[in-house]
């Protein structure tokens, strides 16, 4: 009996640990996650408090028009652009759009992709076949090309762009979730829930989804990085948001690409902004992947 008691007291002392809280603990122990989170927090603060942080307004001319604008100086750390606007301020304001596009387009792609993937994986059979062939069709078109096509079709509004980028991620999420659900659907614990009499919807939402969603979450963080690059790319091609009042990193790059030789700061600084925001999401995504990988569980 003493053994059972010993076990009982041990159970009472230790904190219960769920798989999610275990994963969270591992994320916190990962230095890469800290760097990623720090960078991301920095960009979020820039976006939210842009009017407070930025020394000038995004459209405000502080210098004069110049063919070769002045580079970084003590007064203007990132220099000025050809219209005499402060580059630092424009990049800080630009964080708003980039993060917004990243988050919203992935949210659109994620929700559509998850619904399709869940239907496909849970019901299987003919439904699955039809949905998956359609996803394959979408995957066969390069994502960026698809986004260009959609933007041309829908117009250059901000929402249209986010929607277009979101759509390109749908097949990735759908396939990922479907595969993950298929792996869980026949698991014993799902069978156990069925034998208990658990109805279909609860089976999906309480048992199958929570166990299939981990890879999708990881993919989502990585997709945000891609979305930021995509919107920069669209802007670079002249398909970005057509509101001139909205500074956007990609558009910034596109407009100044030809000045790389004599005004490198106009390309480098927005370029760095893109690179570091993408890096932030990638670091976070990788840390998450490591944290929820079942193979790494003790």
């Amino acid at each position: 009996m003493s053994i059972a008691e010993a076990e009982a007291s041990q159970l009472a002392v230790e904190q219960p640990s769920g798989l999610w809280s275990d994963a969270w603990r591992r994320v916190r122990r990962n230095p890469a996650a800290w760097v990623g989170a720090g960078l991301l927090l920095f960009f979020v603060i820039c976006a939210v408090f842009a009017p407070v942080i930025a020394p000038y307004g995004p459209q405000e001319s502080v210098g004069s028009l110049a063919a070769v604008p002045p580079g970084p100086s003590a007064e203007y750390p990132f220099g000025l652009d050809e219209q005499g606007r402060d580059v630092l301020s424009r990049i800080i304001y630009g964080a708003r759009l980039s993060l917004l596009v990243g988050v919203v387009s992935v949210a659109i792609g994620l929700s559509l992709g998850m619904v399709l993937g869940a239907i496909s994986g849970y019901f299987g059979g003919r439904v699955d076949g039809v949905i998956m062939r359609f996803m394959d069709l979408m995957l066969s078109i390069p994502g960026f090309l698809l986004a260009i096509g959609l933007v041309t079709l829908l117009g250059r509004g901000l929402f249209q762009i986010m929607f277009a980028i979101g759509i390109t991620t749908v097949p990735i999420f759908a396939r990922l979730l479907r595969g993950s659900i298929l792996a869980q659907r026949e698991a014993d614990y799902v069978l156990a829930a069925r034998s208990v009499g658990t109805p279909g919807l609860r089976l999906l939402t309480v048992h199958i989804l929570p166990n299939s969603i981990a890879p999708v979450i990881v993919q989502a963080t990585l997709a945000m990085a891609t979305a930021i690059i995509d919107v920069a790319g669209l802007s670079f091609l002249g398909l970005g948001p057509n509101d001139p009042g909205l500074p956007e990193w990609g558009k910034f790059l596109a407009e100044n690409a030809s000045r790389l030789q004599n005004s490198a700061h106009l390309v480098f600084f927005p370029g760095f902004a893109v690179v570091f925001s993408v890096l932030a999401f990638n670091l976070l995504g990788d840390a998450l992947r490591e944290a929820i990988d079942p193979k790494l569980r003790a």
């Binding site: 798989l19 698991a187 014993d188 034998s195 309480v206």
Partner: peptide, 21 residues
């Protein structure tokens, strides 16, 4: 009917939902 018959599984690792307490 499922209230009257129940099942016990072979694999004690896979037959419990790892995300539920």
């Amino acid at each position: 009917l499922r209230r009257r018959m129940q099942m016990v599984f072979q694999d004690p690792y896979s037959s419990l939902n790892p995300r539920q307490n």
